[in-house]
Write a protein that binds this DNA or RNA. Structure first.
Lengths: 103, 103
DNA sequence: AAAATATATACCAGATTTGACATAATATCA
DNA sequence: TGATATTATGTCAAATCTGGTATATATTTT
């Protein structure tokens, strides 16, 4: 479908969704969930490799233990951005991040 | 500073910040800003390579032109997650994303 | 230069995310 | 086992983000 047609349809009030959706999750949303799950695993591994508890890790990352725990679980109330910030806060490098995301 | 000391200080109400801060931006925050800027560039390039305008790109990405414009500028009101979603919405692959982030 | 396109900015209400507290559940150890 | 340490879950106010409208500014076309 060309863009002019899309704009015309949109003007008429139609929802012009892409067809590549599955169970309500778009390609983009699925890719993001994948990355979040990979990051969660990496966070636990990183923290343990440093010998830290969730309490001490939370202090290092300047947040609460409860939120930190949610981050490690890729809880739905946690953004990708927060997960990445915490990963960096634990000392992870950009290289480690990219390796994790590529999983 | 060991973690036990950190926990003790925190209990006493002190703010125990890391020293590696510059102009208020932590290492993590700077890394994220870097990634956002790289993504913004990639988004513009991607959109243009598809021959789309901000209006048509916004429709494809299911948002408004105004928000889409902010995304392309890595505006402070835009999250990393939204930028990634839009990049994917324009058809970018995980590989392209990683390449962009590694810049 | 005027009209038409395209992009940028201001603003705001509603939605989402965050940090924090309280407390529960689980694991570890004396 | 009981005490202690660690991790998980529920809740919520405040902060941040999002989509959308309106409008301004800039660019391109005729």
């Amino acid at each position: 479908m060309d863009k002019l047609k899309k704009e015309r349809l949109q003007k008429m009030g139609w929802k012009v969704g892409d067809v590549d959706e599955f169970l309500g999750l778009s390609h983009a949303e699925m890719a993001i969930v994948e990355m979040k799950v990979a990051l969660a695993k990496a966070l636990v591994a990183k923290r343990k490799s440093l010998g830290e508890t969730q309490v001490s890790a939370a202090i290092i990352a300047k947040t609460s233990q409860s939120r930190y725990a949610k981050v490690e679980h890729a809880d739905s109330s946690v953004s990708l951005e927060l997960m990445i910030k915490m990963f960096f806060a634990l000392g992870a490098t950009k290289k480690e991040l990219l390796k994790t995301l590529s999983a």
